[in-house]
Design a protein around this nucleic acid. Structure first.
Ligand SMILES: [Mn+2]
Ligand SMILES: [Mn+2]
Ligand SMILES: [Zn+2]
Ligand SMILES: [Zn+2]
Lengths: 171, 171
DNA sequence: TGGAATACGAAAACTGTTTTCAATATCGAA
DNA sequence: TTCGATATTGAAAACAGTTTTCGTATTCCA
């Protein structure tokens, strides 16, 4: 099995664990616990997918409308530094963030028609990269692999596209 | 053989071919041939590596100091549109451009110590990606694979780093 | 060669992100 | 508890890379 199924439901226990881990990180660094940061991270961990700053801020504002961009940016940096979150860039000029899913590392397929981003992990692919690096006398710290293309199931794809359009009209 | 050796010398015949191809593209699109565009593309094609806009402008200004950013940006867009050049982003916030090397497609290894960017191509890797896409009912239009890490040959790496530092001090 | 179409360059605008700064909140020590 | 050093916040300004605007200049074909 190669495709990772990001669960539709948020695992509340997992979220609590992440919140605790972040709290620990904050303390370890001698930083302070704040209402805003708590709101931001608990909102973030309850969202699924690859979240842009604007998307996150919009959600956060539903809880506390006074929170601004700066705090969201700053908190996301802390989340990344804590290792709980990764930054992604899929070429649309926006940074996107995702909490680690079940598998530590994964790569992405991005449909240019409907915007769907699916995740996959393949050990052979990973191993092959290691082998190539080795041959090149190179040590890999991290990598990124993105496949850009289109869903072959045009029906589902176009449906998603319609939904996405409707949603963005609403926003 | 997996590593692509980007030749140190510029192949003058190849450059002429590319210049001709661009001229043809310009005509086909009903655009005009200009002194500035000629300067920019002939400068670009004679540079090796992954060139940023600023780097290119600096070189271009040696030939014609009156050429500005806007024209360089515009010409690079045309070069990309013509298919003669590809845009790359290696995560430092700058767009970089490269003329196609001998092989149509290649991927990159980026040393985070010395900045060296090396290129490679591996058919098995490409095939494996296709297979994974297939399994996922996905059609790949293009992909990007970047390995970030460090040269294992620390001597050469550090030497390059020193040289690079010296160079950027000079600039 | 005239002139419509295109391109140029400087500067302004734009976009996503970071920084500044004055006001506010946190939290350990007293 | 209260104090006060230290960290945090939010609005706005600054930033960096890129794109657009706009008045002037150039191209190129009828
Ligand atoms: Mn992901
Ligand atoms: Mn390359
Ligand atoms: Zn799709
Ligand atoms: Zn190196």
């Amino acid at each position: 099995m190669v495709t990772l199924n990001r669960t539709r439901e948020v695992n509340e226990t997992l979220v609590k664990e992440k919140e605790a881990a972040f709290a620990e990180f904050i303390q370890r660094k001698g930083l302070k616990t704040t209402r805003q940061r708590n709101t931001i991270i608990s909102t973030f961990f309850r969202l699924r997918g690859h979240i842009s700053v604007e998307e996150l801020l919009n959600e956060v504002k539903k809880v506390n409308p006074r929170i601004g961009y700066a705090t969201v940016y700053r908190t996301l940096h802390l989340l990344v530094e804590s290792g709980l979150v990764e930054e992604r860039r899929f070429g649309d000029g926006l940074a996107r963030y995702e909490g680690h899913s079940d598998v530590e590392h994964h790569d992405h397929m991005i449909c240019l028609e409907c915007g769907e981003i699916s995740e996959f992990y393949n050990p052979r692919l990973e191993a092959l990269q290691e082998k190539l690096a080795e041959e090149n006398n190179f040590e890999i710290f991290r990598h990124r692999l993105e496949l850009y293309g289109a869903c072959k199931d045009k029906t589902a794809c176009q449906a998603r596209k319609g939904k996405k359009a409707a949603k963005s009209q609403g926003a």
